[in-house]
Every structure is written in structure tokens, then in C-alpha cells.
């Protein structure tokens, strides 16, 4: 096995990890902040890519196309939110319904199952080709890192506002939130919108990066998002307590995921098995906190020391 092949592949893995980090941050907002496992994202990722590519093919500027993609994601999140809050459908099912509908929507947006965009003809923000031999400010790793920094700053501000605090309270304890006059339904919809907006933005960048949008590009992305969240927490939750740093740890988790992925590929593991491998790893990581609670003695804190009240 050629170690240089691996080394050469690493920058690409980092770039991919960074692009997926935006998606993972979206998953973090639903899964950790709102306490909803939102499966819409499998469809939204492709929607973002499809809208971005189609807009650019129609001659739109790259930023406008990315913005349009993000708005499409907001809309997808809105639909799931309405399914869940207004129509009373369980969140996981609401997400699956939207995801299914998005399959058709995505095909209609692209007109076919795969829509390519040529990096030589269009002025893309990120691309496979912008990893080496380009000035640093054009380098995909640099560009996406800046985008993530801006997004984390925005989200940190947003979740510190009255509205954002209300969303956090909604996810933590909906009963308490309503008792404090918070419109929990509205907040869930807003949270789902923000999350899916981020996922679509990630999809827009991913489509540019790989040079095409594909109807299957989002399949299983929720698992990758969860993996990034979990890896980030496993590595950094002891040192990162601030909300912004928690989002950063999700980004780190995503990069680590793609680095490991690259190593696995380099080891000549059958790539057909990778999705099964990801699913098993995520399942085990999700089980760890449950096992910990079940098989270890409760700590003093968990018993809630009534004495010192």
C-alpha cells in the first residue's frame, strides 16, 4: 500500500469533511437542540445541490444560486414542520414524508437523475480542482472553512437571542416552554427550517465540489450527520462547553469521519460495505450513553441530592 496515495488523498477528504460539516451542524440543530431526529435532510441535501446547479446552468451568479438552494432547504424544513406541528404527525414520519416527496421534486428540478456542471465553464465557489495549485483564497478548504466560521458565528448569535433561547427551551422541555409563553410549534418549525437551510447549503457546495448534482447524493446523509455529531462529542465534549465550540466540534467530527473514511478506502476495503459500516458505528455510539445509564451505578448528581436544597 502506497502511503503517498493516502497523503495525496487527505486534502480532498478534509475538503469533503468541511462541506459535510455544514450539513452535520444542521443535523445538530434538530437532533441535539430540538431533540428531533429529522430525516428530511436526506432529501434536502439533494434539493440544495439540484437548485444550485440548475440555477447556475441558467446563468445565475454562484452566490445567488447558493442562496436559492438555501431557501429551498428552508422551505423543505417548513413543510416537515407543518406536517409535525399543524398536522400532528410524529417528527420522524413527518421527515420521511417530506423526504419522499422531495425525491420527485428533485427529479423535477433537475429534469433528470443527474445534472452535471463543468468547472471550466462556470465560476464555481468550490471544486475538486481547487484543492491544489490554486491561490490559497481560492482553495476549497480555505473557502469552506471561512463559510463555516461565519455560519457558526451567526448561529451562536441566533441561539443567544430571545427567539433562539426559546427554541432551545422548546427542545429541552416543551411543557416548561409553553408555560413560559413560548410558542413551541412555531419554534419547532423555525428550528427545522434553519436546519434544512444549512443542509441545502451544504448540498449546494457538495454539488459544486463533485461537479454534479445526483438524485442519490443525499441517501444516508442523516447517518453521516449523526456520525459527525457523535464523533465530535466523543472527542471534544469534555473540553468544549460553549455553544459555538460545540458546533465547532461537530465540524471537527465531520472532518475526522472523512479522514477515517479515506483511510478505510486506502486499506482497500470493499466500498460497497462502507454504508453498512457507518450505520453500525453510529448505532454503537448511540447505544453507549444508554448502556452507561443501564449498567453503571447512578451517580450522586443523578440522584439529585435533596439534602443540600
Amino acid at each position: 500500500m502506497d502511503i503517498m496515495a493516502l497523503v495525496n488523498a487527505l486534502p480532498g477528504a478534509v475538503a469533503q469533511g468541511l462541506i459535510w460539516a455544514i450539513m452535520a451542524i444542521g443535523v445538530y440543530i434538530t437532533y441535539r437542540v430540538l431533540d428531533i431526529a429529522d430525516l428530511t435532510v436526506d432529501g434536502t441535501l439533494c434539493t440544495g445541490g439540484a437548485v444550485c446547479v440548475v440555477c447556475m446552468l441558467a446563468g445565475w451568479n454562484v452566490w445567488a444560486s447558493i442562496l436559492a438552494a438555501t431557501c429551498a432547504g428552508l422551505l423543505a424544513g417548513f413543510v416537515t414542520g407543518i406536517f409535525h406541528t399543524f398536522m400532528g404527525i410524529q417528527p420522524i414520519l413527518a421527515g420521511i414524508l417530506t423526504q419522499l416527496a422531495l425525491w420527485s421534486v428533485n427529479l423535477k428540478i433537475m429534469g433528470k437523475a443527474n445534472q452535471a456542471i463543468n468547472v471550466d465553464k462556470y465560476d464555481l465557489l468550490v471544486s475538486l480542482r481547487y484543492i491544489k495549485d490554486v491561490p490559497f483564497y481560492q482553495n476549497t478548504i480555505f473557502v469552506v472553512a471561512i463559510v463555516i466560521a461565519v455560519l457558526i458565528a451567526l448561529l451562536y448569535w441566533f441561539f443567544g437571542t430571545e427567539l433562539g433561547c426559546g427554541i432551545r427551551a422548546t427542545g429541552c422541555n416543551a411543557n416548561m416552554a409553553r408555560a413560559q409563553g413560548i410558542n413551541t410549534n412555531l419554534n419547532k418549525v423555525i428550528g427545522l427550517m434553519v436546519s434544512n437551510g444549512l443542509v441545502a447549503l451544504s448540498g449546494a457546495l457538495l454539488a459544486q465540489y463533485q461537479g454534479f448534482a445526483d438524485i442519490n447524493m443525499g441517501r444516508g446523509s442523516i447517518v453521516i450527520g449523526l456520525a459527525a455529531v457523535i464523533i465530535g462529542e466523543a472527542l471534544l465534549s469534555r473540553v468544549f462547553h460553549n455553544f459555538a465550540l460545540k458546533l465547532l466540534s461537530v465540524a471537527v467530527g465531520s472532518i475526522v469521519y472523512y479522514l477515517v473514511y479515506q483511510v478505510v478506502i486506502w486499506c482497500k476495503v470493499d466500498t460497497d460495505l462502507l454504508k453498512a459500516f457507518s450505520a453500525v458505528v453510529v448505532a454503537i455510539f448511540l447505544a453507549v450513553p444508554y448502556w452507561k445509564r443501564r449498567f453503571t451505578k447512578p451517580t450522586v448528581a443523578a440522584k439529585g441530592g435533596e439534602k443540600n436544597a
Partner: peptide, 17 residues
């Protein structure tokens, strides 16, 4: 406490606390 102090008020994009 900050959440509670805004009971009955519109939750805006002003700082939460």
C-alpha cells in the same frame, strides 16, 4: 430566569439575556 422574564412578550432577535 431570562426566558421567564419574557413571558407574554414577543420573542425577537434581541439578545436573550
Amino acid at each position: 430566569l431570562a426566558l421567564a422574564s419574557r413571558r407574554g412578550m414577543a420573542r425577537t432577535l434581541r439578545t436573550g439575556i
